[in-house]
Amino acid sequence: MTCRSGSGGYLEEQSVELREQCIIELGAATGVVGILAACLGAVLTLTDLPTVLPQLQANVSANRPSSGWPTSLPNVLPLSWGEDHMDFSSNWDLVLCADIMYLPETFPLLKETLAHLCKNGTVAYLSSKMREEHETPGFFEEYLPRICNVELVQHDDDQNINIYKVSLKKDQ
């Protein structure tokens, strides 16, 4: 992967400002979306479960632009939703989540984590394959709207992938 890859295309297409924005990615896995954001100038923190971090760190190192990171080396930190999210600030510009909705039992943990991270007006972008068997549509249509403003900003019919723009409701 290079920094000019098509990953994270929505953010580029919509000209979402990433340069010098403080961004945290939840469930980063391989880090593709976050690494792209860092290549575009974001001050980035990539998070996932502790067992994923060695590969994630290796991917960050392997994808370092030849001219260096535009702002700073991305941070790679452990974050278990609903458990240690309070160790992170609520002063993010953006929260990114790419295809992290697999287990309905994690929905309350993710909701709690998003509520903390988005406290100060932060916007989150969540992209997800809409898997009925994992109750993904219900998360975005019924569960998350209880505490967040949820706007569908893109739908890919061919791959059944939605992108949502999410912000915490004012009374939360």
Rank of each mutant, 00 (worst) to 15 (best):
T71A: 13
S72W: 10
S72F: 10
S72D: 08
S72L: 12
S72T: 11
P74N: 13
P74D: 11
N75Q: 14
N75C: 11
V76E: 05
V76W: 04
V76S: 09
V76N: 08
L77D: 12
P78N: 01
P78M: 01
P78Q: 02
L79K: 11
L79S: 08
L79N: 12
S80V: 13
W81E: 10
W81P: 06
W81F: 10
G82H: 06
G82M: 05
G82S: 06
G82Q: 10
E83W: 01
D84G: 00
D84P: 00
H85V: 08
H85D: 13
H85W: 15
M86G: 07
D87S: 14
D87Y: 07
D87K: 11
F88A: 02
F88W: 15
F88N: 04
F88H: 11
S89E: 02
S89P: 01
S90W: 07
S90Q: 14
N91G: 06
N91P: 04
L94T: 11
L94F: 15
L94W: 15
L94C: 11
V95H: 07
L96N: 03
L96F: 04
L96Q: 04
C97A: 14
A98D: 14
A98P: 00
D99Y: 01
D99E: 02
D99L: 00
M101G: 03
Y102G: 09
Y102D: 08
P104R: 01
P104D: 09
P104Y: 02
E105V: 13
T106G: 06
T106Y: 14
F107G: 00
P108F: 12
K111E: 10
E112N: 11
E112I: 01
E112M: 04
L114N: 09
L114K: 12
A115S: 13
A115R: 08
